[in-house]
Design a protein around this nucleic acid. Structure first.
Lengths: 191, 191, 191, 191
DNA sequence: AATGAATGAGTGTTCATTCAT
DNA sequence: AATGAATGAACACTCATTCAT
């Protein structure tokens, strides 16, 4: 459970993450991870308490990476509308640059017995910032007065679908414009 | 692989369907299904060739149920816009009445080694009708000229999210109105 | 266990025999036999008490077919030497014409839990006639004074190997001559 | 798949070998092997990748034991005739001392889905040396000009039959003399 | 005579986890 | 810190056999 050999720790996380992205979370096993890292299976239990613990830390690592990306947004001097639009654009760019990360996060969240359900620690979710913004947006009369879940569903799913199966890897920001309009018209309160 | 005892056949399908909905498709096992039905595990192989075969038939059963629901739409004298709107409303009502069914269908589709991938028969998918409508809608200038995947993503995910976590079981059709507007404004081409 | 439908009885025997010859006795199962015959698995138990019983009757059927072939040899007016040589030639011709039959007989004999071991009936084995001839041959000073098992081993194995992997299906009797000489020089007492 | 506990590795091989010799290769199962060794079934998969892998290594172990026995024959200064006769005598003595080994080797070779068929490594077979000798013998005019398969069939089967059911465990080499003559007269070209 | 249904035992294999070294 | 060894539980699947209809 300790982590002296920081490098191997990171390796295990990385390999697991790749496995989730390529084969799906359900097909991840400590056996496979160990084999890919090139260590013995039991070695994993030195770095992680559990398989769940491993997945939980994979989740955390992807999450913090994502949060770094959005930190600039908070405490900014932008208007709420600008913040909301900026969030969408940021998410789009993050998804484009780290397609695997969002996939991994969502897969772990969606797992049948997700390690997040049983987690004693309540992680500040990646959607927390987004949810706050949305709630503020609804209160300010900028966004449609429906459950914020729906706004988030649209933003996340459209961007995910767009970046994983439609967008080209190095596409220009402008290619996203029509999709952005789609999202915005969906969530923004019509005048 | 034979079937006379129609009742037990249906029971197995039903139990499997429940298992998928509650625990996720990845956690379905013939052992669990058999235990829940109250039969011996090997008995399942009298009714289904495979575990894959079982899942495939669960999928089919849900699918046909869903298709009956939409049959009225085809060959109708409605305008394209009306058909599109009707589709969304129908999907909403179906999802409300059979919340489990859509979940099950999507889970089986999303399985790592989905039985649908290897299936020799090419089933007319449940999204086939929707996709056709959407493509027609785009061509007719009714819907936004972006990849139809995006329209479908919005329609499906919003309705799914709404019916599973927001809507009340017996709610009035009018409660869906704001959500419908959200969807429609997302996919419809603004004038 | 009765056999009203003589035809199906024969069919089962035949299919089983083919299975043994092509896949090996170890891979024979009532499931496979039933599927190949086109009947239900349980139906087999009407014609045969057991799987063992089935195999035993397959064995018997091949055996009697083989014995018909050699019947002409007994009570003949040939000298012992002539009878021995005739036996070898007959066996060669039988093996050439019914390559599967000998294979099947030997496979059933060689089975781990051969149905012949536990059989209450003591069948007149196919090698019985041969063994008698050999013993007589030894006593008469025609064959080498070693255990008759060895003579039989040579005769059977050489012919089996020759007919299954070396001989051409429609070859002339003369092609066998050198092999015959090999066998005869092996078993005959040198002067 | 790892091996440090050399002892248990050998035990598993030994038990499997015994099972093959007594019950036949078809009746070997990891369950039985584990039970006889006194370990849990899954433990076997620490030492062997597969059931096939296990059988393959049983085969290899017997084979190398046998090859040690014959090594002296190669590079020797004997004439071809002497080498051929020496081979037969060696095989006889080996079979007498390790009756189980030849049985095991032949059984694994003859298995319906023999692990040797799918083996990537092409092992120098135990009959390889013998076959080479026989071919040389035929070319040199010492052995009968028929397919070498026939020579090998006789040598192997006669010795196998003799040592397993006729010879006494501690018998004198001279007891084999008449059998040796039988074999030699069968394969040697008559002058 | 024939079948559908059922079952318990058995098969090979994978997995998460533990522990002594 | 790392590994080899071990295990029990689970998994998908096959089989011989029985029984009511």
């Amino acid at each position: 459970m300790k982590k002296k050999n920081e490098e191997k720790y990171t390796q295990i996380i990385q390999v697991t993450s790749n496995l989730i992205a390529t084969q799906g979370a359900a097909l991840v096993s400590t056996t496979k991870v160990a084999k890919l890292v090139g260590i013995s299976q039991s070695n994993i239990y030195i770095y992680f308490k559990n398989k769940d613990d491993l997945l939980y830390h994979v989740y955390l690592s992807k999450l913090t990476g994502m949060q770094h990306f959005f930190m600039t947004l908070e405490n900014s001097s932008l208007t709420l509308t600008q913040q909301l639009k900026a969030y969408i654009m940021n998410l789009y760019q993050f998804a484009l640059q780290h397609p695997q990360d969002i996939e991994v996060i969502e897969q772990i969240k969606a797992m049948p017995n997700s390690p997040l359900h049983s987690s004693e620690l309540n992680v500040t979710d990646d959607t927390q910032l987004a949810r706050n913004l949305v709630v503020k947006g609804i209160d300010a009369g900028i966004l449609r007065p429906v459950s914020p879940e729906l706004h988030l569903t649209i933003v996340f799913n459209v961007i995910r679908r767009y970046t994983t199966s439609i967008a080209k890897p190095n596409e220009d920001k402008s290619a996203f414009q029509p999709v952005f309009a789609m999202i915005w018209d969906a969530i923004a309160k019509p005048d």
